[in-house]
Design a protein around this nucleic acid. Structure first.
Lengths: 350, 350
DNA sequence: CCATATATGCTCATGTTGAGCATTAGGAAA
DNA sequence: TTTCCTAATGCTCAACATGAGCATATATGG
């Protein structure tokens, strides 16, 4: 009741997942340290200098990569012990102490040149090979990941735990259908099952991950950055379906196929071309510029841009990007399943 | 590049929005201080004692209200200056310094008795009268809130700002259809426009809010708690449509009308009874117990419970609640509008 | 038995979705 | 030029989902 306790202060780290689609691939801005370990741009939050997290984040990213962030959105705040420590070395004088990470997602229409700043744009599927279903189910998934998860479930101490593990695997890895937004669940499960290198690193456990490198378990990242990246992947995938965020990773003018490829890159699976076009056009998201573009071969494609309405909405800085009325369905979808969504989260544009 | 700066430490506050539906009304657990100001249960996060935020949060809530939280989910982390300070008095020795609030949403099937702990279950529409459309558009909205927002827009210094304000009002307050999930956007806009008492308090500005009390602008709360509550309302409303979360605010057995009323209470508008039933039944979310219940008058209603599938899913503690495949629509909805959603966010059950 | 209040069953027009066929328009090869 | 090849585009269709509302069933209280 009486809330008088000595207050512990905590160091807060700001992490950015800066995503673009380049050459048909979803890429994320990374830095690569001396040991070849990738990390996200990050830095400590200093309340004395920054009125908001976002201001601090923008400053850190600019300082580390020379990039000015446009659209950004808060993802999640990670506060659990043992996930951030090993590589959270940005701090001097914070050794061993808890660091809370606030993750952000930023989107940009193209990869800026970051070579001067030791930056790199990495295909995010390097970190999550099992998430890319554009060419069908990834072989790494069925041949390596799932069997190992099954072993992990089997290793459970008792039957109840075994069943619980099996159920979680089914849910995350889609026993009844792959759900692309579950990227975080999948990564977390693999972490728990010691299938990713970070788990071995953090827990000193000795799993199959040690020998893998960037194989079926994907490339590891510093600290809890891969977890933050997985959060970003899942969040962006969810959002793509309900918000015109694609236009944040798209140049002002584009063909519908280009647009589709960007969506596919992020969402991780392929779409029916004609239906995609119908959806986008009849939905009033795009409008023709009148120009057309000749592909290397084939009929020229009409060039589009985001519709006036969408552009207005994207310009509504500091306010959540809008949607129109969505009929309420309770509480699931067509398959009788349930989908994952969240309420309004805010986003800002520099 | 070199990340060596002295690291500032920050106090972190954990805030819980504990929601139930009681007697057809959505209620939130509050504490009421000496001055009659409501606040959410909260307390500082102490990394030395709590391995995770959630553990800390559960402890605080239990200590303050004797309640053991079940399902909880992280909402958002608020770090901006000037929103938390005035009433964030839980700390001794943190005076004036920045406090970061991590907000959580908790759901329970019924209101526990919290009278002994100075707790109260308050109808959340006391705080957001404009959010309850169950009986049609709230008069407070059209008669008081909207006109004042229009005045605020008109007061803008220049035309560009005026247009921007008008656009934001349209988006948040649904010029083309009310979107129930936008609760946070609406509250934030009202805060910016000095329509809510907290704005006056925080900024010392002198708006119409001062004279309102809990009138059309709703009852104020301590610190930034009302903002956190608005976040919770929006998030829960969004989630209700895609996840079987209703069953977290529902007793094990219920009639379909009871279920519907709970959804309506949270979502803030009324539903077509037969269609709701069709949706819930054909979706396989519920199953009949065989029993029936006699209402005060009228035909007895069949008693249902959450289906086996739903119960299993709800039991998947520590993992995001599942959904089945949702067909990808890009990137909007039927009306050609765009909807708000987010990716996977995790939730745990005690 | 009648009036009243729900619960519950069903129908219907409309709109959406997933698939796929057919046609069109450039460049390149024959 | 004519023929191929490759995409872009236009359209059709069946299955299903959604929003509304009519009709019936089963209680309770005169």
């Amino acid at each position: 009741m009486t809330a008088a306790e000595p207050i512990a202060r905590v160091a807060i780290g700001l992490n950015a997942v800066v995503a673009v689609v380049d050459d048909g691939r979803p890429k994320v801005l990374c830095r690569c340290d001396e040991d070849g370990v990738f990390s996200l741009p990050y830095g400590p939050f200093d309340p004395a200098r920054h009125r908001t997290f976002e201001i601090g984040l923008r400053e850190w990213v600019t300082r580390q990569t020379q990039i000015d962030l446009g659209y950004i959105e808060q993802l999640y705040t990670f506060g659990d012990e043992g996930r951030e420590a090993p590589a959270a070395a940005f701090q001097e004088g914070a050794g061993g102490e808890r660091i809370v990470s606030v993750g952000y997602l930023a989107l940009a229409p193209e990869p800026a040149d970051v070579s001067a700043a030791r930056g790199q744009w990495r295909d995010w599927y390097d970190f999550f090979p099992w998430e890319d279903w554009r060419a069908g189910e990834p072989t790494a998934l069925s041949e390596r990941v799932l069997p190992r998860l099954a072993e992990w479930a089997a290793r459970a101490s008792d039957e109840a735990e075994r069943a619980a593990r099996a159920r979680r695997i089914d849910l995350a890895f889609g026993a009844d259908g792959w759900e692309e937004e579950r990227a975080l669940d999948r990564y977390e499960l693999m972490y728990e099952a010691d299938l990713v290198a970070e788990a071995v690193r953090d827990r000193g456990s000795d799993g199959p991950a040690r020998a893998e490198g960037a194989g079926p378990a994907g490339a590891p990242m510093a600290s809890d950055h891969r977890r933050i990246l997985a959060t970003a992947v899942g969040r962006l995938r969810g959002k793509l379906k309900y918000r015109p965020v694609v236009f944040r990773v798209t140049p002002p003018e584009f063909t519908l196929l280009d647009l589709q490829r960007r969506v596919e890159a992020l969402i991780g699976f392929s779409l029916h071309k004609q239906n995609f076009r119908r959806n986008v056009e009849t939905g009033g998201f795009v409008e023709r510029t009148g120009a057309s573009e000749r592909p290397p071969s084939g009929r020229p494609a009409a060039v589009f841009r985001a519709s006036d309405r969408v552009r207005k909405e994207l310009a509504a800085a500091g306010l959540t990007i809008p949607r129109l009325r969505r009929r309420a369905r309770f509480f699931g979808d067509d398959d009788g399943g349930m989908t994952d969504a969240a309420g309004s989260d805010s986003a800002t544009v520099a």
